[in-house]
Each structure stands twice: as structure tokens, then as C-alpha cells.
Amino acid sequence: MRRLILIAVPYIWLLALFLVPFIIVLKIALSDAWLAIPPYVPTLDISAGWAGFKDFLSGLDFENFIFLTEDDLYWKAYLSSLKIAAISTLFTLLVGYPIAYGMAKAPDEWRPTLLMLVILPFWTSFLIRVYSWMGILSQEGYLNQTLMSLGLISEPLIILNTNAAVYIGIVYTYLPFMILPIYSALEKLDASLIEAAEDLGCSRLSAFWLVTIPLSKQGIIAGCFLVFIPTIGEFVIPSLLGGSQTLMIGKVLWEEFFSNRDWPVASAVAVILLLILVIPIILFQRNEQKQREANE
């Protein structure tokens, strides 16, 4: 009995507030937009019984999905989200790996502090961290001021409201997600392996390529997924730092819902976004599984 309550309470909560809402999204994605409250038909009329249910089912169709394939805005948004996510994941890796490597090589007594310094930004507001870059990157911002006073440039660089600013914002906010798994892989790495490679005639650089990188592969893969997956649906960064030409699907969904008030299309966008995310999520879990098995 006690066990039943223990299982039932969180179970019912998740069913009611996670699974059911999701089914509603799926249902509305198959409905038509209508000038009403709520702004879509058909609605399920429970009082009409079975006949009402049949009416409801016959009112559903794939029109919204067909609409998404016809309007190339959506294709472009999905593709450009994938592209932005892939490029910024690569940049995050290039920035994060040396930091993780430096942390793993740092003296033992520094490591807890360094680790804390990486985790601390993760606890500070995401919105504030993105916002802090607006002042730096804007035309009269701190970066341009510094570069101009150093005489490196004569005209201010236009960075804010371009894709470059979006990349910087993503690298900055997701950096801890990249550093932590790579650090934990590098920390476990046995230093004598590298010494052995060098004794056997490897240069330091080739020892790094042939020993360190392959042995930290799991950490690299985990870090890349941890950056790539949430970036695809990102909304705040492209809206604050990106420009009008920055096309990302999270932003499209938001505008479809709040500006166009087209709920069925917004729902259909959400369903396809999830389908796109399924593949990287499954790959990520496989990688985690492999890692667990390797540790055992």
C-alpha cells in the first residue's frame, strides 16, 4: 500500500502535467486554426459520447504538417537551427577542451576551486549571462571601444544582431556543459600512458593526438551532445543577440504562437522539432550507456 502511494503520486503528477499536455500538443497540431477561444477546431465534446469522439477524430488531419513542408520558412528554420547548433558545438569544443585540459593538469589542490569556478556561472541566471554580452558586443559597446582605443580598428565592428553574436552567446552559456564531461574524462587519464608514448618516440603533440584525444573521446562526445541538443531549440540567445536574419526554430515557434497566434501551426512546429531531437538524444544515451559499461 505504502509502495503504491509512493509510486502513484509522482507518476500521476507526471502523467497529468507532462504526458497529457504533450498529447494535447499532438492533437492541436492535427486540428485547424479557427477564430474562436480556444483558436482551433475540433474540440473534444465529451458530453456527446462516442459520436462526439468520432466527430472529433474525423476533424483531425495532417494539414498543418503539409503546410510546414510547403512554406520554406520552416525548412530553412529547422536547417539553420541544426547548422547554428553544429557550428557552435564545434566552437564550444575548441574553447572548452584546452580549459578542461588545463584543469586536469592543474595541481591537485587547485582543482576543487577550478571546478567550482566552472560550475558557478551555471547557477547564475542564464538570461543575465546572455544579457551581459549585449553591452559588450553592441556598436558603441566595450569591445569596440577597446579595439578602437587600441587603434586596431577605425570603424566599429557590427557584431550584435548577427549570427556571430549568437555563436559567441552559445559558446559562452554552454561552455560549462562542455568542460565538465571532458574534464572528468581527462582527470581519470593515466599520465603514465603519455609518458610511455613519449618514451617510445612520440613527440608531445603526437602523444596528445594519439593517446590523450582518443582516451577522452567519451567526454568529448558527451560534451558535444550536451551542447548540441539544447541549442537546437534555443530561444533566448537568438532573440537577444541574433538579428532578423537569424533563423532558429525556437524563435519561429515563439513568434508563431505569440505574434501570429496560430496554435495549430505552432504545435506542428513543436512536434517536428521533437522528432528532430529524437536522433541525437538516442545517440547520446547510447554513448552514456557505453561509458557506464566501460566503467564497470
Binding site: F22, I24, F235, W263, L274, L277, I281
Partner: peptide, 17 residues
């Protein structure tokens, strides 16, 4: 792993429903 926009949208639709 769910994008926030989807979690938000689905819960809103539930509350309205």
C-alpha cells in the same frame, strides 16, 4: 532534454484546455 518552448507550449495548452 525537452526544449523549453515545447514544455511551455504544451503546459499552456493543458491549462487552457
Amino acid at each position: 532534454v525537452m526544449p523549453e518552448v515545447i514544455t511551455g507550449l504544451s503546459l499552456l495548452l493543458l491549462f487552457i484546455g
